[in-house]
Amino acid sequence: MTLLEIKDLHAKIGDTEILHGINLTINRGEVHAIMGPNGSGKSTLSYVLSGREGYEVTGGDILLDGESVLEMEADERARAGMFLAFQYPVELPGVGGMTFLRAAVNARLREAGKDEVDQLAFVKLVRAKAKELGVSDDMLKRAVNVGFSGGEKKRYEILQMALLEPSLAVLDETDSGLDVDALRIVSEGVNALRGDARGMLVITHYQRLLSHIVPDFVHILAHGKIIKSGDKSLALEVEENGYAGLIDAAE
């Protein structure tokens, strides 16, 4: 079942076109990886998908469950099931973790015409999921991302993903800044969420993450275009030979 369809997507920031025609289809149950060197447009793709202001789509379309999301605001897309795990999660001083998580979950429930969460049950649920991901109670009490280490921030992103149960999860450089142990915990968290209900798009520079979260498909992004697609062996090829050869071959 088709979850996400990106059709000939062109996008620019200011006057500079960054994405020059991206085509990609993700079905439910699939994990796709996008790999590419710095400046290839990886983060731009994640922001364009999630509807960040300042990124202008100049051509093509993005369909989620068959519906175009281009006219939707970022929060509408999120409520429609799109989740972005940020490369650099943002600090929200003074905003309590529980307050934030509950607000996000309730926003979705309201959209679906459902009752909001029971406060006590929610706290219990968050604590249980947090424990699996090694997110301490103390972290839950603090303001969102404030004073968290790099690894803590990434685990907190995955915790949010677990609670929000998106249909499409976009993971932007989730491995950056993680040590081996943290990488394992985060990957286990992500793998636990794999399943027929959702698709995932894992954006990364290195193959390292993909040995923990093994993708069904791998795409190489360079200069704003997908230049090659394949299975997980393509990631190993990059690991071995770097991007240069692939890019040269494509050009």
Binding site: S50, G51, R52, E53, E73, A74, D75, A78, R79, F83, L84, F86, P89, V90, E91, L92, P93, G94, V95, G96, T99, F100, A103, A104, A107, R108, E111, A143, Q160, L164
Partner: peptide
């Protein structure tokens, strides 16, 4: 950045601002 982060979690403009402002006043 803060607004986008909240939007990405499904919060609309008013709610995001209210949340961030209340955090500011905590």
């Amino acid at each position: 950045d803060q607004l986008f982060y909240c939007h990405q979690r499904g919060l609309d403009e008013e709610e995001a601002v209210s949340l961030i402002v209340n955090g500011f006043c905590r």
